[in-house]
C-alpha cells in the first residue's frame, strides 16, 4: 500500500474531527476523497502528512510508519495545498526552483526538473512573472508546479481547483491524469463531484470524521436506492393530478413536480421509462420533452451524507 491509515482519531477539544478513520490507497490509484465541509478531509490529509498530531491510530506511507522526521518518505511525497503556498517576492521560475531545491540538491538535475514542471503546467510564458501578476488559474498552476517538480511517487492534492475558471480546471485535471499515467499515485480531495467522477479510479466519501462509503464510481452508484432519474414534460394535463397514478406503478421510488414537469426516481436496478410512458398514453396525456439519466456521484453523495446544510468549518 502507498498509504495505509488505521483507526485514526483526532480531537479538537470536544470535537471529534476524525473518528476511527481508515484508508488504504494502492499504488497507481487516483483516490478521490469526498466530503461536505467539516467532514475531516483536510484534517485527515494533514495527519497523513504529519503536520498534525493525532490522538490514536497508525499511519503508514510506502509501508513505513510516517512521522514528522520521516525525511526518507517525505522526499517522495508532493503536496498541493488548498491555499496557494508560494513566495510573493520570487518569480515563477524561482519559486519552483526554490521548493524543488528542498528535495533535489543537485543543481543540474533540478534545472531539468523545473523546466519539466513549467512545461507540465504550461507556465512557459510566465517564468519571470511574480505571483501577484498571475491570474487565479495561473497561480493555481504555479502552486501545482511547486508541489510536483521533484517528481514524487505520491501526490496529495487538497482541493487544488478552488476558485479556478473552467479552462484552467480542465487543464489541471488533465495534468493529474498525466501524472498518474507517469507513475504517481494521487490522493485528491474536492467538493466538485464531476471532477472526482472524471478522474478518480476509486472514491471515498467522508462524513463526520469517517469514511461512510468507498468504491469505484459504479460501485458507489450501486449503493444508493435510486436507479434512474426520469423527467417528463406534460403538454395536455397538469402533472400534479397524476402524481398518485405514477406512484402506484411498480419500482417507483419518488415523484416530484416542478411546473409542468414530473420528476420520477425509480428503484435501484429497475428501468421504468417505457412503462410510465405507456401508462400515461392510456390516459391520453401528450408529453413533450423526456429525459432519462443514471444517478450521478452527486446523487450518491447527497443520499449518503444527507441534504442538510453543513456550515462547520474544515479544520
Amino acid at each position: 500500500m502507498i498509504v495505509k491509515v488505521s483507526n485514526l482519531v483526532k480531537r479538537y477539544g470536544d470535537l471529534i474531527a476524525l473518528d476511527h478513520f481508515k484508508l488504504d490507497v494502492a499504488e497507481g490509484e487516483i483516490f478521490g476523497l469526498l466530503g461536505p465541509n467539516g467532514s475531516g478531509k483536510t484534517t485527515a490529509i494533514n495527519c497523513i502528512l504529519s503536520l498534525l498530531t493525532f490522538d490514536k491510530g497508525e499511519i503508514e506511507v510506502f509501508d513505513k510508519k510516517m512521522t514528522p522526521s520521516s525525511y526518507d518518505l517525505k522526499k517522495d511525497i508532493g503536496v498541493i495545498m488548498q491555499n496557494v503556498a508560494v513566495i510573493e517576492e520570487l518569480t515563477v521560475y524561482e519559486n519552483i526552483d526554490f521548493f524543488c531545491g528542498l528535495y533535489v540538491p543537485d543543481k543540474e538535475i533540478r534545472k531539468k526538473l523545473v523546466k519539466e514542471a513549467i512545461d507540465f503546467v504550461g507556465l512557459g510564458d510566465f517564468t519571470k512573472f511574480y505571483p501577484k501578476k498571475l491570474s487565479g488559474g495561473l497561480l493555481r498552476r504555479l502552486n501545482i508546479a511547486c508541489g510536483i517538480a521533484h517528481k514524487p511517487r505520491l501526490i496529495i492534492m487538497d482541493e487544488p481547483t478552488v476558485a479556478v475558471d473552467p479552462q484552467s480546471r480542465n487543464n489541471i485535471l488533465e495534468g493529474i491524469v498525466r501524472l498518474n499515467r507517469e507513475g504517481a499515485t494521487v490522493i485528491y480531495t474536492s467538493h466538485y463531484m464531476e471532477e472526482v467522477e472524471q478522474i478518480c479510479t476509486r472514491i471515498g466519501i467522508m462524513d463526520k470524521g469517517r469514511i461512510v462509503a468507498m468504491g469505484t464510481n459504479e460501485e458507489l452508484k450501486g449503493m444508493i436506492r435510486v436507479g434512474e432519474k426520469i423527467s417528463i414534460e406534460f403538454l395536455t394535463a397538469d402533472p400534479k393530478d397524476y402524481v398518485e397514478f405514477v406512484e402506484s406503478m411498480p419500482y417507483i421510488a419518488a415523484v416530484e413536480v416542478q411546473d409542468r414537469t414530473m420528476l420520477i426516481k425509480t428503484e435501484r436496478g429497475h428501468n421504468g421509462l417505457s412503462t410510465i410512458l405507456t401508462e400515461l398514453q392510456t390516459k391520453n396525456i401528450k408529453v413533450g420533452r423526456v429525459y432519462c439519466e443514471l444517478p450521478t456521484l452527486n446523487d450518491v453523495f447527497l443520499e449518503i451524507t444527507g441534504k442538510e446544510l453543513r456550515d462547520g468549518k474544515e479544520k
Partner: peptide, 19 residues
C-alpha cells in the same frame, strides 16, 4: 515563513524532507 501554523508557505516547507 517556516511555521506551518502561520503561513501556507510554512506548511509547504514543513513537508520538505529537511529539518
Amino acid at each position: 515563513t517556516v511555521q506551518a501554523n502561520q503561513t501556507p508557505t510554512g506548511a509547504r516547507i514543513h513537508l520538505a524532507p529537511l529539518n
